[in-house]
Write a protein that binds this DNA or RNA. Structure first.
Lengths: 171, 171
DNA sequence: ACTCAACCCATTGAGGCCCATGCGCACCCA
DNA sequence: TGGGTGCGCATGGGCCTCAATGGGTTGAGT
């Protein structure tokens, strides 16, 4: 799972080092997919083979000629850059994606569970501020608490024995 | 799987280089099929032996004398150009398909999972813009999220263990 | 004989691969 | 607990390979 946030620099050749913990989350794979976040937040989203395979399975579940599927395939499949890490864990960011996400010299890698995000640092700070406020809202806290309880019950019906789920495959 | 988008040029002899990652997705085969997209989007659609075999199997499942089957056979089977890549990975685009898709000097190859598309660059830009708007719509994002959850549950019922699927065959 | 197309060779430019370096963090030992 | 040392990670740079494109030649068909 992709957890935590790291900062990295774009070098003169347009390369960035993937943070080592994220490389570990990729499970040794060297293929990286990058695309623009669907929600218009202006960041990039990325993942490895496993995530793309999941997305393929997901997209295949949608009605073949539906607008929804065509839009998602366009954004995620056609819109992805298909990159390969070098020996030192770096990728070359494509021009168009850098421009779209306003990435210049320094960037932020933010964990997003199955995927990670790449942010312009200023936009990321603004996003953080907004999310901090949203997270503190009572309905957010309540929704979280309720969902957590459901997971607990699903695991050991009523008998809470501490967290049990473990990290499985890779990302 | 055909992922990402690449630009290529038509040379004086009417040839275009298939992007190297797409050649890899073809699994070493040198036979390429090209036809006009069924949905009227004005692009061409293409694939290799494996895709055509899939289509053959698909069409065979349809009632033999049905209008549906006849229409699809006409468009996909009769309507396809059967091309062969040269040693450097180029194909010669047939006149009629170039005219139908308004392909002149530069073209776009867009990944479409099991197949790829060939676009006039301007039309592709317009299509992208429309798809970007459609993808950002709340109902699209929700449909995607729901389908993704289903895939997750299908894998490890409720117990999230991280992405697990792996890339299978070719396109 | 002429035309068209397929096959082959050449060039160049970008991208991938590899080596080198320096810094910071963590661990170890005193 | 503090200082020293070593390894891992981030970064810079050079080289070499491969992909994209242009052009030429040969063979077959008309």
């Amino acid at each position: 799972m992709f957890v935590s946030t790291y900062e990295s620099a774009i070098d003169a050749k347009g390369r960035v080092s993937i943070p080592a913990p994220f490389r570990a989350a990729l499970g040794g794979g060297t293929r990286i997919f990058l695309w623009q976040a669907l929600d218009g937040s202006g960041c990039l989203e990325g993942g490895g083979d496993a995530l793309m395979a999941m997305y393929r399975a997901t997209l295949t579940r949608l009605a073949p000629q539906s607008e929804v599927r065509k839009a998602l395939v366009n954004r995620i499949i056609a819109g992805s850059a298909d990159l390969k890490m070098d020996e030192t864990g770096r990728i070359k960011l494509p021009e168009n994606l850098c421009k779209a996400a306003e990435l210049t010299d320094r960037i932020k890698f933010a964990g997003n569970m199955d995927s990670f995000q790449i942010w312009n640092p200023e936009k990321h700070a603004a996003f953080n501020a907004a999310m901090e406020a949203a997270a503190a809202a009572p309905e957010t806290l309540e929704a979280f608490g309720r969902a957590y309880s459901e997971v607990l019950h699903q695991q050991g019906v009523g008998n809470y024995m501490g967290p049990k789920l473990v990290e499985g495959g890779e990302g």
